[in-house]
Amino acid sequence: MTDLARAPSDKTSWRTGHADRVLPVLVVLLVIVGIWYLAAIGMNAEWVRDQAARADEDLTSGEFLRRTLILDRPVLPAPHQVASGLWDGIFGQKITSKRSLIYHGWITLSATLAGFAIGSLAGVVLAVGIVHNRAMDQSVMPWAVASQTVPILAIAPMVIVVFASAGITGLLPKAIIAAWLSFFPVLVGMVKGLRTPDAMQLDLMRSWNASDRQVFWRLRLPSSLPFLFASLKVAVAAALVGTIVGELPAGASAGLGARLLSGSYYGQTIQIWAALLAAATLAAILVALIGMIQKATLEHMGLAR
């Protein structure tokens, strides 16, 4: 009986799988861009028509279409306008400039990461408490659920105001709001994860007279990691949303949220969309980063499925 049941899977399947994954994404992207152009033409048409009527111009249909896509303050900016806004915001400005998306992105990112760290830690600690303590098991979860039913848009300004009255502004209040949103998925995922070991695994531990602490470190925690990573992905995106919401009230002067707000004050739709796309890209990068850590960790642990 020296047969090795399975050889490590070869890497060739990964390569074809990669192309298989990229193609659908590209197709969907193309479709979205196409729809976006059509929508931009449709939504900006009225303004172009009005302007032309006022100037008594008679536009050819080609000229008409061109104008719907180059407005300064379009109802819906065309993709290439947003792209150039993004390009300008990222590469066209000094990163210390208030017009730089890198500058605002960093402000948002730092608060997001701080809030994510606080929230994830709180979620893990609460989950450990719930799994090991009967009283916490019965009392914490309803409050955790209740905390998430409160509209964050209502809570955020109050958090900002309360902290500001104590002289604390900047990163921390925003991080608290981010943590408020991000602890919950981690809590739910970790409670589930810490409870995955089945009765047999726990019986084995019992037969060895293992302490709760030993069961936790050697069985529950490693078993929970797939669940932890899945919820960390949700949590980091939620933290970004929380941070941006925290940047909206009280006329914050920096951060992607502030950029969104000032864009809407001045009707700078291109600026709004560029900031939105920057935020979405940031979220995608953060989620992808956690995905990479997840993949490496779980593969190393033999838990990858």
Binding site: M200, L204, S207, N209, P222, M301, G302, L303
Partner: peptide, 15 residues
């Protein structure tokens, strides 16, 4: 720790 117990499933930790 008077006994060792063996279950129907091996219950080995994959990690």
């Amino acid at each position: 720790r008077a006994y060792g117990y063996v279950f129907q499933a091996p219950g080995l930790y994959p990690w």
